[in-house]
Design a protein around this nucleic acid. Structure first.
Length: 658
DNA sequence: GGTGAGCTTCTTTAC
DNA sequence: GAAGCTCACC
């Protein structure tokens, strides 16, 4: 557990701002967690004044666990380990008044804000247009621009349109008592900038900041860091420009340079010894990343063993690829007597997990799919959540629109459109408008009755909500709203019904576990969560995107779909963002401790058609001497039958336990 | 107002 | 090849 000199220096340097340029596998999490310990134990800083900030929930969770293990016996009460977004949410929940928000405000997720943008665009706007406008709005928001400023800076008709819609969008959000993901950073920045008393209070509250994956900060996140740290600069930023893979959501590696400009007393420490990868793997990683330009050249080295050659599997299609990966995992697990959790399968896009899951199920290999929001995307979970949101925030129109149809209660598009018009005219939210007799009076009796019934159900549940925990409320409302009954009648067989009811149960249990806080506050926190953090993965093969894998490490790593068009991704090729794709490949390679497998398919289904695909250009960039190709040439057929036999044997072994 | 057949469109990555 | 959307029908 001892630190090398550079790591030690990074841990002990607390008197001026510090930037740690940490190569992959150089022990940066260890530096951060030990530094937390150092601050508490040697510098006598209360844990409650320290915040470690990460970018993904997964990273936060990992950090929290590692810190807890290290801090056993140390008073670490009140230590903050969270993402930028949850820090922002926490800030807004405390300072909601200054932000012009009422208690119980909602968070609009991507779906909600997409629907809102669509609503604000001319009728008949197409999907891609909506997505483009949304992207532009998000971009100007994470650059910290106001709608007015965005309009001034717009250089194309589309940007002007986006700036215009951005303005209306913010007004709607304010009316809904809601914020979106970008606001979680943008609003705290705005408030800290505008109010000296808030600045002082929060600088006192958070005396020391540790920012992980610093290369991924965007404009507003940098502004937040700057405002919270102040001129004193009580912070350590840890980053690696070679692992910058979030430029598409506004991350700017120029923020690395900015630190030295804003804090001239900044100290920089480089960590260049890799403790993770076998040498061959590290050589491959270094070779491929050498194709990118560098501002801070670093030379990563390792004193580990050489390790095995990197195997490259050529397959016919992604089903065969998945089968082979699964067979190989079974084989390696037996050979090395390894736990399933020592294996990870990494891919570019979430949809690639399907074929893999199928193959793993078939071969009886336990797996855990992390990342994505599959759980929260489930219809029954979204329905229950929209009810919770509406109960906490009567002005949440997005929640109203979903809850009103969960289950169906004879209130359809026509009625809602009429209600919407009247609500707009009265400057009221849908929920408030539907409470008013004069509004209901203008609707056909049948619709008015249905709405009235809905509203009284809402107010009854809202009264009940005040007296129960969020978990109990969740269980009660699926009963009382008729959701459970609707699910039962929709489900053909009992097993399906049980599974869907189980999802709702799980939601309630999440609230039970989350403990303190009003249901409104907890629902907001849940909006920031992805599947990744829901349950502990246990002893299972990990499936995740390359993006989600950053910061993690595994003995055995399989990167699948190493094809031109996927990795590098088609749109990144078109738009000349090949360097970021290369960094993504680099991140994937450097996750592996002992064994690295790459694979690609020669054919892929696209738009239902089967098309030929070429292996990724990144395979060419790897040092040929380190690679061992399987199935690339004429011997491919012979190999394949062998593999199939191997897979069959492995399956039998799995079935009968040897 | 609700439902299902047939049409289109889509495919990045995350909070 | 799936999910969303539109339109006709109950």
């Amino acid at each position: 557990m001892s630190l090398n000199p550079a790591q030690r220096a990074a841990v002990e340097h607390c008197d001026s701002p510090l930037l740690v340029l940490a190569g992959a596998g150089s022990g940066k999490t260890r530096v951060i967690t030990q530094k937390i310990q150092h601050l508490i134990v040697n510098r006598r800083m209360p844990a409650s004044k320290i915040a470690a900030i990460t970018f993904t929930n997964k990273a936060a969770r990992e950090m929290r666990e590692r810190a807890a293990a290290l801090l056993r016996g140390v008073d670490s009460e009140g230590l903050t380990v969270c993402t930028f977004h949850s820090l922002g949410l926490n800030f807004l929940q405390i300072e909601h008044e200054a932000a012009g928000l009422r208690r119980g405000f909602s968070i609009f997720d991507s779906d909600d804000s997409g629907a809102l943008v669509k609503d604000l665009m001319p009728r008949g706007a197409k999907g891609p247009d909506i997505a483009a406008i949304r992207g532009l709005i998000s971009r100007v928001k994470s650059d910290g621009l106001t709608p007015e400023r965005a309009a001034e800076l717009a250089t194309s008709p589309r940007e002007r349109e986006a700036a215009d819609i951005y303005g209306q969008y913010q007004k709607r959000l304010a009316a809904f008592n809601a914020v979106d993901f970008d606001d979680l950073i943008r609003l705290p920045v705005h408030l800290l900038d505008a109010h000296e008393h808030l600045r002082e209070a929060w600088r006192e509250r958070l005396r020391y900041l540790l920012v992980d994956e610093y290369q991924d900060t965007n404009g507003t996140q940098y502004a937040l860091l700057k405002l919270l740290a102040g001129p004193r600069g009580g912070f350590t930023c840890v980053g690696d420009d070679d692992q910058s893979i979030y430029a598409w959501r506004g991350a700017d590696t120029a923020n690395i340079e900015r630190l030295g400009q804003d804090w001239p007393q900044l100290r920089i420490i480089k960590l260049e010894q890799n403790y993770r990868c076998a040498r061959r793997i590290l050589r491959a990683a270094n070779t491929i990343i050498a194709n990118n330009p560098h501002l801070h050249p670093k030379k990563l080295w390792s004193d580990h063993a050489e390790g095995e050659p990197i195997r490259v599997f050529a397959c016919n299609d992604n089903e065969q690829e998945a089968e082979r990966v699964a067979a190989e995992i079974t084989f390696l697990a037996h050979k090395h007597k390894a736990e399933w959790s020592a294996f990870a399968i990494l891919f570019r896009g979430n949809h690639q997990s399907r074929a893999l899951e199928k193959a793993l199920q078939l071969q009886r290999i336990p797996y855990h799919l992390s990342g994505g929001t599959a759980f929260l995307e489930r219809a029954e979970v979204k329905d229950a959540l929209s009810w919770l949101r509406l109960l906490a925030n009567p002005d949440d129109d997005a929640a109203f629109l979903r809850a009103v149809a969960a289950p169906k209660r004879e209130i359809g598009a026509t009625t809602l459109a009429r209600l919407g018009e009247m609500a707009n005219a009265l400057h009221l939210s849908l929920g408030r408008a539907a409470e008013r007799p004069d509004v209901l009076g203008q609707l056909p009796a049948r619709s008015a009755n249905a709405l009235d019934g809905f509203i009284s159900l809402v107010s009854r549940l809202r009264r009940a909500a005040a007296m129960m925990t969020a978990g109990d409320l969740c269980r009660k409302l699926v009963q009382d709203t008729g959701q459970l009954a609707a699910i039962r009648s929709e489900c053909k067989d009992d097993a399906l019904f049980e599974r869907r009811r189980g999802n709702v149960d799980e939601l309630a249990q999440w609230f039970d576990a989350a403990g303190k806080g009003s249901s409104g506050d907890l629902v907001a926190q849940l909006a920031l969560l992805t599947n990744a953090d829901r349950d502990s993965p246990g002893n299972a093969v990990r499936l995740m995107t390359l993006h989600a894998s950053k910061g993690l490490e595994f003995d055995f790593v399989f990167i699948v779909g190493v094809e031109d068009g996927l990795l590098p991704h088609e749109s990144s090729i078109d738009e000349g963002r090949i360097e970021e794709e290369r960094r993504l490949m680099y991140v994937g390679i450097t996750r592996a401790r002992r064994v690295l497998h790459l694979s690609y398919a020669r054919h892929a289904r696209r738009f239902g058609e089967i098309v030929r695909v070429t292996p990724s250009r990144f395979i060419e960039e790897l040092p040929a001497a380190e690679l061992h190709f399987v199935g690339r040439d004429a011997e491919q057929d012979a190999e394949r039958t062998q593999e199939h036999a191997g897979a069959a044997i492995a399956r039998l072994k799995a079935l009968f336990g040897e």
